[in-house]
Measured scan of single mutants.
Amino acid sequence: AVSDRLIGRKGVVMEAISPQNSALVKVDGETWRATSGTVLDVGEEVSVKAIEGVKLVVEKLE
């Protein structure tokens, strides 16, 4: 799938994300809905860990 190429890519949080709420991230110039197990604020850099349906699963870039 096209989205599989995004695993391992870096992105930027466009809307705050919490474990209860998905929000938008920008990866390679494209906007995607994403979820995370932690709270992520706007502007934080993230890494794509997986794809669940049409959502990216991201975590904060260390």
Score class of each variant (00 low, 15 high):
Ala1Glu: 10
Ala1Tyr: 11
Val2Met: 12
Val2Gln: 09
Val2Ala: 12
Val2Thr: 10
Val2Leu: 13
Ser3Arg: 10
Leu6Asp: 01
Ile7Cys: 06
Ile7Leu: 08
Gly8Glu: 03
Arg9Ile: 04
Lys10Ile: 14
Lys10Tyr: 07
Gly11Pro: 02
Gly11Leu: 01
Gly11Cys: 04
Gly11Ile: 01
Val12Gly: 01
Val12Cys: 10
Val12Tyr: 06
Val13Gly: 01
Val13Cys: 04
Val13His: 01
Met14Phe: 05
Met14Gly: 00
Met14Glu: 05
Glu15Pro: 04
Glu15Lys: 06
Glu15Tyr: 05
Glu15Ala: 10
Glu15Val: 09
Glu15Ile: 07
Glu15Trp: 05
Ala16Thr: 11
Ala16Cys: 12
Ile17Ser: 15
Ile17Met: 14
Ser18Trp: 11
Pro19Arg: 09
Pro19Ser: 12
Gln20Tyr: 10
Gln20Ser: 12
Asn21Leu: 10
Ser22Ile: 12
Ser22Met: 11
Ala23Leu: 15
Leu24Gln: 05
Leu24Val: 08
Val25Met: 00
Val25His: 00
Val25Phe: 00
Val25Ala: 01
Lys26Met: 14
Lys26Cys: 15
Lys26Tyr: 13
Val27Trp: 02
Val27Cys: 05
Val27Gln: 01
Val27Pro: 01
Asp28Glu: 07
Asp28Lys: 00
Gly29Ser: 05
Gly29Pro: 00
Gly29Lys: 06
Glu30Cys: 13
Glu30Lys: 08
Thr31Lys: 07
Trp32Cys: 10
Trp32Ser: 09
Arg33Cys: 15
Arg33Pro: 15
Arg33Asp: 14
Arg33Thr: 14
Arg33His: 15
Ala34Leu: 00
Ala34Gly: 07
Thr35Gln: 07
Thr35Asn: 06
Thr35His: 06
Thr35Ser: 08
Thr35Asp: 08
Ser36Ile: 04
Ser36Asp: 06
Thr38Phe: 08
Thr38Asp: 14
Thr38Met: 10
Thr38Pro: 05
Val39Pro: 14
Val39His: 13
Leu40Phe: 05
Leu40Val: 06
Leu40Ile: 09
Asp41Cys: 15
Asp41Ile: 14
Asp41Val: 15
Asp41Gln: 14
Val42Lys: 07
Val42Phe: 05
Val42Met: 06
Gly43Ser: 03
Gly43Thr: 01
Glu44Val: 10
Glu44Asn: 09
Glu44Ala: 10
Glu44Gln: 12
Glu44Trp: 09
Glu45Thr: 11
Glu45Gln: 11
Glu45Phe: 12
Glu45Met: 13
Val46Phe: 06
Ser47Thr: 15
Val48Ser: 01
Lys49Ile: 15
Ala50Cys: 08
Ile51Cys: 05
Ile51Gly: 01
Ile51Pro: 01
Ile51Gln: 04
Glu52Pro: 01
Glu52Ile: 13
Glu52Arg: 09
Glu52Gln: 11
Gly53Tyr: 00
Gly53Ser: 04
Gly53Lys: 04
Val54Tyr: 11
Val54Pro: 09
Lys55His: 14
Lys55Gly: 09
Leu56Arg: 02
Leu56Cys: 01
Leu56His: 03
Leu56Trp: 00
Val58Met: 00
Val58Asn: 02
Glu59Asp: 07
Glu59Pro: 00
Lys60Ser: 08
Lys60Ala: 07
Lys60Asp: 03
Lys60Phe: 04
Leu61Cys: 09
Leu61Trp: 12
Glu62Arg: 11
